[in-house]
Design a protein around this nucleic acid. Structure first.
Lengths: 201, 201
DNA sequence: CCACATCTGTAGTGAACACTACATATCTGG
DNA sequence: CCAGATATGTAGTGTTCACTACAGATGTGG
């Protein structure tokens, strides 16, 4: 019993192209025709490999979060809560205006609101945004334990705050904000975290 | 020459229903069938009154910003920049979790990314978000002139920051964040504005 | 009461959509 | 070299979409 004809395209490479289409047009705005053209394959190959349109989106989200995961690890490796927030938000200002990618964040552009039949797409995106928030929260809990954040601070609220600013910056980037504008937002935003930090001068 | 048969439905009432559908499903996710059913009219009445789907969205956006305009005036009427930010963000925490409306903000839920043929929908939303930002910026310019904000502060950056936090909170609300969670975010966010304010104790 | 103008409901229109049947091509195991 | 298995390309499938033709209803001005 043979193993069948081998796939003629690189699944990860095709996924990168699909990711970009979803990023630019959103889940509902992206058509199978656009996706297959960008991926350089025909519909049957797409469905054989990813099941259906939503399966393709999930695969693209997995790849996106995997790529960003390494960077997030660097972010939370910063020595202080203030530095974590600064690295996170400054990095996001740069990433979301990187001309190599569509502007904004796939976890927002992908589809905040969807029509009947695609209700769980926004859930999928939210779940992955929540992962980043959890990572930040754990880091801020540690910062509080280490005496880096004030005893009165709320690590969960701080993480939610940084996450909210990130999302807001993403929406701004997608509507044309340039890198300098986002950096200014990040700069202001960090000061709220600083206000929750213990002074060590 | 007569004036023709009069319209049998209340355009503003119908617009409120349409607004809610766009709010919940986004521009592309909302179908004409859903819209007409919610509005209690048939397609020809919709097209006679609003032109097409995009015209209906614009009318809904106009109504939305008009309703919010009065509230924004109250916000910028606050005595200090810090208080402006606090009123704005606390009010948004409440509004975006008001069970009378879909969660989040229409100016975000309406459609951050759209497919081919609807490219200007995201532009329309962004333009209206920018109006609020402009209003905040003008208010912060005044605050700086009054000595309320530090001479080193950047009113435009502050306005962009508050706007970004608002948007981020909206996305969080649409993905299930409750009122208390958003209020905590607002609380943290205000501290960045406070850090730019002149101490008057 | 009539000419005209506008609205309303029914019932579609063509186009675009996600998805797939099928024949063919290309592999592996025996 | 053959049988089984999987991939590919062509060419569709039925469905849903935004939008509208048309006929009848309801108003105004003369």
């Amino acid at each position: 019993m043979g193993m069948g004809r081998p796939r003629e395209f690189d699944a990860e490479l095709a996924l990168d192209q699909a990711m970009e289409v979803f990023w630019r047009h959103g889940y509902e705005g992206a058509t199978i025709a656009q996706l297959t053209e960008a991926m350089g394959i025909n519909p049957p190959s797409l469905y054989a490999c990813f099941g259906n349109k939503e399966g393709l989106l999930k695969a693209a989200l997995d790849r996106y979060t995997k790529l960003r995961g390494a960077w997030m690890d660097e972010v939370v490796a910063a020595p202080t809560a203030r530095e974590v927030a600064a690295r996170m938000l400054m990095g996001i200002a740069d990433k979301q205006t990187d001309p190599a990618n569509p502007p904004g964040c796939l976890l927002v552009q992908g589809g905040i609101a969807c029509g009947t039949g695609s209700e769980n797409v926004p859930f999928e995106l939210a779940a992955r945004r929540a992962q980043n928030e959890d990572q930040l929260r754990d880091r801020f809990i540690r910062a509080k334990a280490e005496g880096d954040l004030k005893p009165t601070s709320d690590p969960a609220a701080l993480a939610r705050y940084v996450s909210a600013v990130s999302v807001g910056m993403g929406v701004m980037a997608s509507s044309g904000a340039d890198r300098e504008a986002l950096r200014q937002v990040a700069d202001v935003a960090v000061q709220a975290v600083e206000a929750q930090s213990v002074d060590r001068t």
